[in-house]
């Protein structure tokens, strides 16, 4: 007990002030690549067209290096609408429809002291019935279609559907997109998205940025 307390004092404040302050870290390849030098690039997911990179398709593989380099900017978040009524408090339900595991862990990282999601009025919930937003990760798999539909149906309005990661947005390298069965309110790009990108997306969707 005492040991924990002293540790906490010694550690000081580690929590980021993002989004009001600057983000402390950003994984380079979680940002959108930018053209750096000329040359042909064989993108495995056809995300590159005329020097522009489709953020929903890019799987952060780095095959376009060195022609493209990470932009080191939080990518543009595509979203359909802003839900201001959830700006004070929002409960998130994490839904895994077929991930490699990385996206889930990046969303769960929001719980860690560096991000401290509770300071933003965010918390995870155990059932979609209590959720304001559903964070869908991974490609659409056959077995999860029915649970996904049930989860979205059982949420009360207003609700926000987040598609987190390239797999959910576009199907990525190996599957189908979530958009085949539901509309995507917010698209969080990356493979996997950096936690700061996820925070930025959530805050934008609630109209706080």
């Amino acid at each position: 007990m005492k040991a924990w307390f002293l540790r906490s004092l010694k550690k000081g404040i580690v929590t980021s002030s993002f989004p009001s302050g600057k983000n402390e870290a950003l994984s380079p390849w979680a940002t959108l690549p930018m053209r750096d030098m000329s040359g042909e690039v064989d993108c495995p997911v056809d995300a590159i067209q005329d020097d522009r990179v489709d953020s929903g398709k890019c799987i952060s593989c780095g095959i376009c290096f060195p022609q493209f380099k990470p932009s080191m900017q939080i990518p543009q978040i595509n979203m359909v609408r802003v839900e201001k009524s959830l700006s004070k408090s929002m409960k998130l339900y994490l839904f895994d429809s077929g991930t490699c595991g990385a996206c889930n862990l990046e969303i769960m990282a929001l719980n860690s002291p560096q991000y401290d999601m509770n300071r933003l009025g965010l918390s995870f919930t155990n059932t979609p019935r209590q959720a304001d937003a559903i964070m869908i990760t991974g490609v659409l798999t056959e077995g999860m279609i029915a649970p996904l539909k049930a989860a979205i149906d059982s949420m009360a309005s207003p609700k926000i559907v987040f598609a987190v990661g390239a797999c959910a947005i576009s199907g990525g390298l190996m599957g189908k997109s979530i958009s085949e069965i539901t509309g995507l309110d917010v698209q969080v790009p990356g493979c996997p998205p950096d936690p700061f990108v996820i925070v930025a997306a959530i805050e934008k969707a609630r109209g706080r940025i």
Binding site: P128, R129, M144, P147, A151
Partner: peptide
């Protein structure tokens, strides 16, 4: 009310 049964019927 239909309780949430992990998405299964």
């Amino acid at each position: 009310v239909k309780p949430w049964h992990g998405g299964l019927d």
